[in-house]
Design a protein around this nucleic acid. Structure first.
Length: 479
RNA sequence: GGCACUGUGGCCGAAUGGAUAAGGCAGAGGUCUGCAAAACCUUUUAAAGCGGUUCGAUUCCGCUCUGUGCCUCCA
């Protein structure tokens, strides 16, 4: 019998793996912090979106109705707290185009690579600039509830007031009085308390991206955007809130604080999930350090499936140190999986008899579900796939029809539906590829003729040329 | 300085209070072979250090050492 089992999720809020139960039976609301679109995303950024794609896919596979909201930050993400320069405006000045052109350009780039990576679209992808009114209303309520104050046209969150009733820092375990604050002296003097964070910032005359508000012409703060949009589409309390580990503090703490202050009760997500960082040479991949690689940088040698497999061979809560060497190793494993899938999907079973095999299909399926149920343990699931792969190569002929179709169905579920590898990349059935294939086949046929005539010079030359365009010929035995 | 996390074979990486510690890559031997490669078969190697709890710890606890992330901004 197939047992899909129950899901356990590591909850950053409680620091424990917990049995996952949605608030409303069979319905799930999930919010994931999306990118600030002021540049091309790098491999580390995509790691997070690959992981939450798996979460999304898995819930869908299990038959849940899930609403997945992933925002796009197109305003309000400040470069630093000193001169209040918006990342997008800075980039627009650098490229000499309008801020909204920047936003458009990098949003298109983001979507293009998500598509290349075979990442499903979320159900709602709200933008910050599309929700200015909601953010203003949100801030107004925070002021009414006495958790925010206006000063000189800007609005700040009153953290001192907040910590009288709620605890701040429960996600990160930080205590605000123990934080390092070297820049305290140069911080703006408007705030009542250095740790108060900006909800609405008054724009200077030169500032391009600004909107009318009850306080002044200005723009919303980054932390307010996410909490407004998650609330709007998922409600005050929802199931899962995700994002990169680097957002845990202060971004998510600030979201949580605003939500509690807004509803005047403990609210926002019940389960918080944080994906760990991708490092390169032991240092976090980041735009500011300049050590970032994009999909384009690896695309020629390593397909998106290989990159995904590489990411998923590590647990999402562990740091991954990226290198091309390791990607090369993954590529070899990927070829194994690819061969297995081709073998099983093209195999026609004839065996009706039952043989005693040391591979039980039901046990294997249950083990796969158990792996993914355990806090989305994709390395374990992949390990099980390799295990099945070894069996398939050796004993596919001995398996009876019933078990064969079961195995075929589920290995396809796990590889394509759940792990989200691209089927078309594995099977390559598009028209252009078919044409290319015909040409290659003709060349291979010609080479075979040359081999039959023992013309090793031409046949070896052909093998080399074909290899140069990525067609690897593995000769059969010469007879 | 505070907080969080990490240390498993040659490399990458899981699980686990007790019997053989997944899986991938690499290495070794073999099958096959015009050559090369691939594929396939077989196979070697592991728990930072010290102490504690326990009948028993890689797993739990403490300390030391190591590395990383966060405390401007970052998925």
């Amino acid at each position: 019998m197939i047992k899909k089992g129950t899901i356990y999720i590591y909850n950053s809020l409680t620091k424990k793996k917990e049995l996952f139960n949605p608030i409303i039976n069979n319905y799930i609301g999930m919010y994931v912090c999306g990118p600030t679109v002021y540049n091309h995303l790098h491999l580390g950024n995509y790691r997070t979106f690959i992981i939450f794609d798996i979460v999304f896919r898995y819930f869908k596979h299990l038959g849940y109705k899930i609403r997945y909201v992933r925002n796009i930050t197109d305003v309000g993400h400040l470069e630093n707290e000193i001169d209040y320069e918006d990342k997008i405006i800075k980039k627009s000045r650098k490229e000499g185009i309008d801020p909204m052109e920047i936003v458009n350009k990098y949003t298109i780039s983001f979507h293009k690579f998500l598509n290349i990576l075979n990442i499903l679209s979320p159900n709602i992808e709200p933008t910050a600039t599309g929700h200015i009114i909601e953010q203003i209303e949100f801030i107004k309520k925070l002021i009414t509830n006495n958790y925010a104050y206006e000063i000189n046209g800007s609005v700040y969150f009153d953290l001192k007031k907040y910590i009288k009733k709620y605890s701040y820092g429960i996600l990160s375990n930080n205590k605000i009085n123990k934080l390092l604050y070297e820049k305290e002296n140069i911080l703006n003097k408007e705030k009542r308390y250095p740790y108060d964070f900006c909800l609405w910032k008054k724009a200077s005359n030169k500032h391009i991206m600004k909107w009318k508000s009850p306080w002044n012409y200005g723009f919303p703060g980054w932390h307010t955007e996410c909490v407004t949009m998650s609330t709007k589409y998922l409600g005050g309390v929802f199931d899962i809130h995700g994002g990169g580990m680097d957002l845990k503090f202060p971004h998510h703490e600030c979201e949580l604080a605003q939500s509690n202050a807004f509803y005047e009760k403990i609210s926002n997500a019940r389960y918080w999930m944080h994906t760990n960082m991708l490092t390169i040479n032991g240092k976090k991949m980041s735009k500011s350090l300049g050590n970032n690689l994009s999909i384009i940088d690896i695309y020629n040698d390593y397909s998106p499936n290989i990159f995904k497999l590489f990411i998923l061979q590590h647990h999402y809560r562990s740091v991954i140190d990226f290198s091309l060497e390791k990607l090369k190793e993954t590529k070899k494993g990927y070829i194994k999986i690819k061969n297995t899938i081709e073998l099983i999907n093209n195999f026609i079973p004839t065996n009706n008899k039952y043989f005693e095999l040391n591979f039980n299909v039901y046990n294997w399926i249950n083990k796969c579900y158990k792996s993914i149920n355990d806090d989305f343990n994709t390395p374990m699931l992949i390990s099980n796939i390799f295990y099945a792969s070894n069996f398939i190569k050796l004993e596919l002929y001995n398996i009876n029809k019933v078990n064969f179709f079961l195995l075929k169905k589920y290995i396809n579920y796990f590889i394509f539906d759940i792990l989200g590898l691209s089927k078309s990349e594995l099977t390559k059935n598009n028209l252009e590829y078919k044409k290319f294939n015909i040409l290659v086949k003709k060349l291979i046929l010609f080479r075979k003729e040359m081999r039959n005539k023992k013309n090793w010079i031409i046949s070896d030359r052909l093998r080399k040329e074909l290899c140069n365009i990525g067609v690897i010929i593995n000769d059969e035995k010469f007879s």
